[in-house]
């Protein structure tokens, strides 16, 4: 049965110019054109967007939550990457 099912697509919507496209959900469609049309009907019935991206779910490579520590921990102890790490006297303004 699974052989005959339509591919899964992820849908991203830009709500207005100036903002990123944001993931809103997924849907099934046979091709990119149908995915766009379905995304419009399913995810933008109330002016939620002015632009839609669809991408076939199988094309997305995602990081593995189990590797979270090795990927993201190194950033946690680098507090010198934040402006508050640098102590300056109060007299110094606009910095």
């Amino acid at each position: 049965m699974s052989k005959r099912s339509w591919p899964l697509w992820e849908v991203f919507i830009r709500s207005k110019n100036g903002l990123h496209h944001k993931h809103v959900g997924s849907l099934h469609a046979t091709d990119s054109q149908m995915a766009l049309e379905n995304a419009r009907d399913v995810y933008t019935r109330r002016n939620e967007g002015i632009s839609i991206w669809v991408v076939e779910s199988k094309s997305i490579t995602a990081s593995d939550p189990a590797q979270g520590e090795e990927l993201f921990e190194p950033a946690a102890d680098k507090i010198y990457r934040h402006p508050t790490f640098y102590k300056l006297p109060d007299e110094v303004k606009h910095i």
């Binding site: 049965m1 699974s2 005959r4 099912s5 899964l8 959900g25 997924s26 849907l27 099934h28 009907d41 399913v42 019935r45």
Partner: peptide, 23 residues
């Protein structure tokens, strides 16, 4: 039409748990 949409949001959430829509 909204109810159809709601069904689709929810089917898509179900699929994230590793079960096919057809099933």
């Amino acid at each position: 039409q909204d109810e159809a949409g709601h069904g689709l949001y929810l089917y898509s959430a179900t699929e994230t748990l590793g079960i096919e829509r057809d099933e």
